[in-house]
Design a protein around this nucleic acid. Structure first.
Lengths: 220, 220
DNA sequence: CACCATTTTTGACTGTAGTCAATTTTGATG
DNA sequence: CATCAAAATTGACTACAGTCAAAAATGGTG
């Protein structure tokens, strides 16, 4: 079977199907966090989710594909907390700095998230979903305000996304300097057209703590 | 068998082994360029190279691994030509700009090279080998000369490498704006601490043509 | 040359991803 | 409730990556 267009299908079938999908997602996340992604087979997942082997493929194309919604939920929850923290801030450079630093710290603390961003051979669009979406918005606002240098979005977005992933891949999978996150942030700000002196200063300001989780931060 | 330490082993055995390795490399490159990487199996390669299936694994760890030396040779040949072009140039920013632009154009024209940089789940070190090594040198020189802002190498290298790969992955695998290469170069220069106005100007100067291939540019 | 220790090659074997035709479930209709 | 067409589920099947014990090749030594 194909992965069906989840649009208007029928009332109950759809909900039952949705429950099975969720069981697969839960089983996959649990097993992958327990044993590591590579040690988990599709069979393991479908056994744990109590569905047939083939059913997996009616919901997801590949084993990696199942990580997209998992990491997307993680990213969304993180983004909501970040948005609460930066909502009142005026300076786009400060918003980008704080977002970048918290994002990198959060990714570093979550091995599954790190694994996804390092190993995924998925299309860029899935990567984007897996790293959270408010970065682009904050950057665009900064450009409109004249705080950042102009930037061709179709190039700038993959440039910065790729840069972050490069650092995560190289630095977060081995021992690394303590200031990796701040140095990365400094380079992001420079990429946006901030002078090095200012980028350096902004990236090293005290980092306000991430707001506590709220109920609706939970995965969708 | 393990992949043996290619160091001093014995005289003739080693040369014979080397010839087999080369046959595998040649067959792999030919088949992959013909049919695309995914459509080529290890069996195809070993059949074409006239060695046993298991022999492949005494030389290379995986199918992707075989692309490292292939792309490394391509990258090295390109780098030698670039070095000839930029040898006499004074301004580090101009060298980086011209190198970046020619490198991206060369990658875009070579589907196998592009594929490798987009799809490889290989360690960063192999990626570095596959994209050529003079970029880091030119950047360091520019920092020493005070032309570029300072940069933490363990962060800066994966940042810029990842950024390039991000652009290649997103832009070079679909239709894209004509100025993708120049916009990328502009962002690279900004990342190095050049102001946007200057980066913009440098990235859009007329691009001197790549020198012709010379004999010793050929793959090692 | 005959023998042997070491290195290299080899293809049968194993485990897993992904496919697909057959089966089951669903809910709409008479 | 019985029937049916459409949708969803399923696990047997195929093809490939990667392993490894056995076989072959090598070259040193008496």
């Amino acid at each position: 079977m194909m992965i069906t267009d989840e649009a208007q299908k029928s009332p109950r079938v759809q909900r039952k199907r949705e429950r099975a999908r969720q069981r697969i997602l839960d089983a996959a996340e649990r097993l992958m966090r327990q044993r590591g992604v590579d040690a988990v087979t599709i069979q393991d997942i479908t056994d744990a989710a109590d569905v047939g082997h083939g059913t997996f493929y009616t919901h997801f194309k590949t084993k990696l594909d199942v990580l997209v919604p998992i990491c997307e939920a993680t990213a969304k929850a993180h983004t909501r907390r970040m948005d609460r923290l930066t909502a009142e801030m005026e300076d786009a450079a400060e918003v980008v700095s704080i977002s970048t630093r918290h994002l990198l710290h959060a990714i570093e603390k979550d091995p599954l998230w790190t694994w996804f961003l390092c190993n995924s051979k998925l299309p860029m669009d899935d990567m984007r979903r897996g790293i959270g979406g408010s970065g682009a918005r904050d950057i665009l606002r900064g450009i409109e305000m004249g705080r950042f240098a102009p930037l061709a979005v179709p190039v700038g977005e993959p440039f910065l996304l790729g840069a972050m992933i490069g650092v995560i891949q190289e630095c977060f999978t081995q021992i690394h300097e303590d200031d990796t996150v701040e140095e990365t942030t400094r380079m992001v700000l420079r990429t946006l057209g901030i002078t090095d002196d200012e980028a350096q200063e902004i990236a090293h300001r005290p980092l306000p703590p991430l707001p506590a989780l709220e109920l609706n931060d939970a995965p969708a």
